[in-house]
Every structure is written in structure tokens, then in C-alpha cells.
């Protein structure tokens, strides 16, 4: 398992640079917007996941992975673990950068951040990844890039309305049990999605 994670880090050197670039650009452009912190976190997390998976398909890399002494189950599980890591790092990075800017340039950012503002983006990307990964692993090499484009478009359309909803909800007072409850259920969804993907991928012909 560790070896598989290592593999992603080595193979993804270039795409990691891409993620940082996305992060910086979106930070600069959206910083002043109210929902910038969520938005940047989510988009960075998701684009990193999709570029990691794309990396695997680009050169029929699943063919390579299945030649290694690992089971397909491990290949899928490792991808879920690394996705989870990416999500947490991206969202935290966004939080830290926004908080730093807030401290460094008083008045530039007017929103106050709380624990909720970290948990909600995490939950959102978890849901997205839970849908994205099974599709990705059951589609062929040609299907994967198309899937990525669809998801990114969906993303850009959905981002603002979702952000607004969250914002309004948090203005009305935060229902903590509800937030933790939904976070828990997204985690369960994520695990279930992993299970499904393992099932689909072990059956698949490469």
C-alpha cells in the first residue's frame, strides 16, 4: 500500500506543480470573494485527484499497475487513500493561506472562518470523489478524460450556488450535530464507493 502511495507521489511530480499553479491562480482571482476559501480548496482538491487518476490512464498505466505484485483491490484502495490525503491538504492549504492573508492585510477579507468552513468543503469533495472514482475505474481509457471534463464543467456551474447555500445556512446559525452527521455520512459514502470500485475494477478486463 505504501509503495502504491509512493508511486503516486513520484509519478505525479508534474501534476503536483499543476495543482499548485491552480491553487495560486484561483487564490489570486477569488480572494476577495466571500466563498473564496471553500472554492479554492474544493477545486484544488478535485483537480489534483483527477490529474492523479488521469496520470494512471494516460499510458494504459493500469496495465502496468496490474503487472506489479499488488492486487487490484490495493490499487483502488490506495487511490482512495491518496484522494483523501489530497482533499485534506488542499482544503487546509486554502484555509491557511486565506487566514494568513486575513491577518497580514487587515480588511481585505471580511469573512470569519470556523471549523465548519473546513469540514464542509471536505465533505463536498468527498461526495464528488465518491461519484467520480467508481466511474473512472469502470470506464475505459477513452472515457476517463471525457469524464474529467464533464466533472470540471459541472463543478464550475455548481460551485457558486452551492457556496451561496452554505453561506446562507451558516448565517442562520450552525447546526453542529447536522454538520458532523453529514460529514460522517459522506465518509461512509466514500468508503462504500471504495467498496463498489474494488468490486467493479477486479471484474474488469484490461
Amino acid at each position: 500500500m505504501l509503495n502504491l502511495l509512493r508511486k503516486d507521489f513520484i509519478a505525479a511530480k508534474t501534476s503536483l506543480a499543476m495543482s499548485i499553479l491552480i491553487f495560486t491562480i484561483f487564490c489570486i482571482f477569488f480572494m476577495k470573494k466571500e466563498m473564496s476559501m471553500h472554492f479554492v480548496g474544493i477545486i484544488t482538491a478535485f483537480s489534483t485527484i483527477s490529474s492523479l487518476t488521469l496520470n494512471d490512464t494516460k499510458n494504459h498505466n493500469h496495465h502496468f499497475l496490474v503487472t506489479l505484485p499488488v492486487s487490484r483491490k490495493h490499487i483502488v484502495q490506495a487511490k482512495y487513500v491518496i484522494s483523501l490525503i489530497c482533499i485534506i491538504i488542499a482544503v487546509l492549504a486554502s484555509y491557511i493561506v486565506h487566514s494568513l492573508v486575513k491577518i497580514a492585510v487587515p480588511g481585505y477579507i471580511t469573512v470569519d472562518y470556523s471549523m465548519i468552513d473546513i469540514l464542509v468543503p471536505i465533505a463536498i469533495v468527498l461526495v464528488l470523489a465518491s461519484v467520480y472514482l467508481p466511474l473512472f475505474y469502470s470506464l475505459s481509457e477513452k472515457g476517463a478524460p471525457v469524464l474529467n471534463v464533464i466533472f470540471l464543467c459541472l463543478f464550475l456551474i455548481m460551485a457558486d450556488p452551492v457556496a451561496q447555500t452554505i453561506h446562507r445556512a451558516s448565517l442562520n446559525g450552525i447546526n453542529y450535530p447536522l454538520v458532523y452527521g453529514s460529514l460522517c455520512s459522506t465518509l461512509i459514502l466514500f468508503a462504500a464507493s471504495c467498496y463498489v470500485t474494488v468490486y467493479l475494477f477486479t471484474k474488469k478486463d484490461l
Binding site: N3, R6, I10, A11, K13, K58, N59, H63, L68, V70
Partner: peptide, 22 residues
Amino acid sequence: SDDCFYYEDVSIRDMKRIIAPF
């Protein structure tokens, strides 16, 4: 295999670093 399935934009040394620990 006839069709190569290694990561294209990775060097031989890095590819070895990926493969060897397995």
C-alpha cells in the same frame, strides 16, 4: 510487452524507484 505501459514523463531512475519496492 509490446505496448509499453510505463509512465511516459518519468525518468528511468524514478520508474525504478516506483517499481523496486514492490
